[in-house]
């Protein structure tokens, strides 16, 4: 709790609450980053699930790199947004679910990428892929609902 209060009263917290354009600009970056991360996750998993089969999954590697750029944008913008009211967010159910979904979704993405390179059965890969999409959508939905719950 002490750390959360320190964060809230720190320079980033003050900036994001009081600067006129700070919040909308960081929030917009978070939306763009989301479009990139989620876009890559969706496009890639659609392929793993069997859509557009004529594309080699390995050819998505470069796209995956772009997904990482989106993720870093959102990690940074997300940390700044968190400083707005960390003492509230930290205990908010939708926020906890969001972070949990991102962690599990990230691990599943790694599992899917390893499976398509290895000799994991196609069924198992597809199950992991579907679960991965579900986790990332859960992250997005709970993130959106943070404004309401």
């Amino acid at each position: 709790m002490g750390f959360l209060i320190w964060l809230e009263e720190g320079a980033l917290g003050i900036f994001i609450r009081e600067s006129l354009w700070g919040y909308p600009i960081v929030l917009s970056s978070h939306a763009v980053g989301m479009a990139i991360v989620m876009g890559v996750v969706v496009a890639l998993n659609l392929r793993v699930l069997g859509y557009a089969k004529d594309i080699s999954i390995l050819a998505y590697d470069k796209l995956f790199f772009i997904g990482w750029i989106g993720f870093i944008i959102n990690l940074i913008s997300g940390l700044i947004l968190f400083c707005n009211t960390p003492t509230t967010y930290f205990f908010q159910g939708s926020f906890q679910l969001k972070i949990g979904s991102i962690v599990v979704g990230g691990i599943l993405m790694k599992v899917v990428m390893n499976s398509v390179r290895g000799d994991t059965s196609e069924t198992l890969t597809k199950v992991a892929s579907a679960a991965c999409i579900a986790c990332w959508f859960s992250a997005m939905i709970t993130g959106r609902l943070m404004a309401y719950l």
Partner: peptide, 13 residues
């Protein structure tokens, strides 16, 4: 938002 991810993801590819 869900529509946005499908739209933007497709465009990215």
């Amino acid at each position: 938002f869900i529509g946005l991810t499908f739209l933007f993801g497709s465009l990215l590819v």
